[in-house]
Design a binder for these strands. Structure first.
Lengths: 222, 222
DNA sequence: TAAAAATTTCAGTTTATTTTCAGCTTCGGA
DNA sequence: TCCGAAGCTGAAAATAAACTGAAATTTTTA
């Protein structure tokens, strides 16, 4: 689950990044409107947190432009309470939700969960493949009633695979989804994590869920 | 599916080539405008990815010239964010779509699919010949409800034949489409792959889809 | 700040795919 | 019906993709 935060105040931006990362989101930052728009338009994110007041291009414009480009990523707009009146305009521009600063971090998390859940057919907040389940709200991974402990990256990779279950994802796609855009990760890293996941998820079970499709990539399926 | 990338920055060009090849496209590179125009005019490609800023001849000119020559291959124009204003002019010059750098590779793939889908009668993203189907989005090949596993090259070859179903393609054409133009592959290699495909696709079925037309080439048809 | 854990890279191995080779078969025209 | 070109085939050689154990590096935790 990859989130773009567009916020010009570095302090706030970094705090958000840190907090969200602790919640196992992958977070990229953009510090002005133009940069934010370009990042957002890449289509590489599952959700965008957008400050209203931004240098270069403000949140409303970004929003409008993205929607015009037929990019329908969920957008959560941040606004100072003094700008509350722009709320209506904000919704018109295509934002999906609103949050006025200052806000409690829990509030933000709740809304992110609400937004990211929306377009999915996830059964509650749980992704399932065969007898394997991944609970998005408490990060519990369970196979055959046995809890499985994963590291942060292992979890992200598994989540990515499970969100696209049955679909083949190649290593570059996985890198793009699971790691931040700056990082240049070797394809071998993905291989290593797939191996780790297999040790924990498949090793002790007859049915192997993670499949290698040589020359194409990996997928998870029952 | 053969794509020409015209891009003077070698790093980007090679990254694109690599990425697209992993998606089973056949990719050729041109590094300046003139070279790009010549390659494009050969009519050997299914799609052209064109950088706006190029030495010798820029993207807009290439576009215009090609359209003047009545060459209507889909063109996807790449532009840096600072050049966003040229967008309008770009569409006027005959480009079919636009993408601002930097972009996520998935975005590029989505647009390529959109463009290449346009002139075809592909039922969604599925190519069909008789009871054989090839799903372009998850690489699944199915005949009579039975999944068929193909290697990467086998898949590319089959995709090529199916995109031009009923049309006879000779070995040189197949080499040009499935392998890159630099590679010097023996015609026998094609024979070997046709054989492999037949083993997997035709062997256990009464109706044989892959046909040899001695002296002319191969075709796939019902 | 030292120890533990997680992340990433490295280098060697295994495994599958790609390509070539050499001999064989088939087809069509002299 | 015989010959040569075109195509087919099984297997070997060359290449490439994926896997693996362990080391190096970074981050987290106590």
């Amino acid at each position: 689950m990859k989130i773009l935060v567009v916020e010009d105040e570095h302090l706030i931006a970094n705090a958000l990044k840190k907090g969200l990362e602790q919640e196992h989101y992958i977070v990229d930052l953009a510090f002005d409107g133009l940069e934010g728009y370009d990042f957002a338009a890449s289509g590489d994110y599952d959700l965008i947190i957008l400050d209203l007041m931004l240098p270069q291009m403000n949140g409303l414009e970004i929003c409008k432009n993205l929607r015009q480009e037929k990019i329908h990523i969920p957008i959560l707009m941040l606004t100072a309470k003094s700008q509350l009146d722009d709320k209506v305009e904000g919704f018109n521009s295509g934002a999906d939700d609103y949050l006025t600063k200052p806000f409690a971090f829990e509030e933000l998390l709740a809304r992110i969960r609400a937004l990211s859940r929306r377009p999915q057919k996830t059964d509650g907040e749980i992704l399932t493949v065969g007898d394997l389940s991944l609970n998005l709200s408490n990060y519990e991974v369970i196979r055959q009633n046995k809890k499985i402990l994963l590291s942060s990256k292992e979890y992200s990779l598994l989540e990515c695979l499970m969100r696209h279950s049955d679909k083949i994802l190649n290593k570059d796609q996985l890198i793009q989804h699971v790691w931040s855009y700056e990082s240049d990760i070797l394809p071998n890293t993905v291989e290593v994590y797939i191996r780790n996941l297999r040790q924990k998820i498949d090793k002790n079970y007859k049915v192997k869920l993670i499949k290698t499709i040589r020359g194409f990539g990996y997928k998870i399926s029952d």
